[in-house]
Amino acid sequence: MTVKEAAEYLECSVDTVYRMARKGELPCFKIRSLYRFDKEFLDEWMKRQQMNCLENLNKDAI
């Protein structure tokens, strides 16, 4: 999927997707100078983000 498609899927801006991809925060690959994203990898990434958030909430509650 393209950067624009990934941004729509993640419900964030194209600039955010570019920034996170450049920093290595989002799973992606490049074809020449174009970033591409695999939906399954983004789904896995989102699940990990949710788990991290829940773990942090549990730590704060203790």
Rank of each mutant, 00 (worst) to 15 (best):
A6R: 08
D60V: 08
Y9S: 15
L34G: 09
K47V: 07
L26G: 07
M46K: 13
C12T: 15
D60A: 14
A6H: 07
E25S: 01
E5Q: 14
T16D: 02
L26C: 08
L10F: 05
C53V: 07
R22F: 06
L42V: 13
A6P: 14
E55T: 13
A7K: 04
I31Y: 02
T2I: 13
A21F: 04
L57R: 14
S13E: 04
Y18G: 01
W45S: 12
T16A: 10
I62T: 01
T16I: 02
A6V: 10
Q49Y: 02
C12I: 15
N56H: 12
E44G: 08
Y35L: 06
D43M: 00
F37L: 07
K30Y: 09
S13P: 05
K4H: 15
K4P: 02
A21Q: 03
R19V: 03
N56S: 15
L10K: 09
D38G: 06
Y35F: 15
V17Y: 00
K4M: 11
M51Y: 09
L42I: 12
S13R: 06
E11G: 06
E55M: 06
L34T: 10
D43C: 00
S33G: 11
L26I: 10
C28M: 03
A6L: 12
R36E: 12
E5N: 12
L54T: 13
A6W: 05
T16Q: 09
N56G: 10
R32D: 10
E25I: 00
C12F: 04
S13N: 01
D38K: 15
E44V: 05
I62D: 02
L10V: 07
L54S: 10
D15Q: 08
I62S: 03
K23Q: 11
W45K: 11
A21K: 02
N52L: 05
K59D: 14
Q50D: 03
S33E: 08
K4D: 11
M20H: 09
D60E: 11
P27E: 12
S33R: 13
M51E: 15
M46R: 10
Q50P: 00
N56C: 08
D15G: 02
I62H: 05
I62K: 08
E11K: 13
E44H: 05
R19Q: 03
V17A: 01
E44P: 00
K23E: 15
R36D: 05
Y35N: 05
L10S: 07
S13Y: 01
L54H: 11
M46A: 15
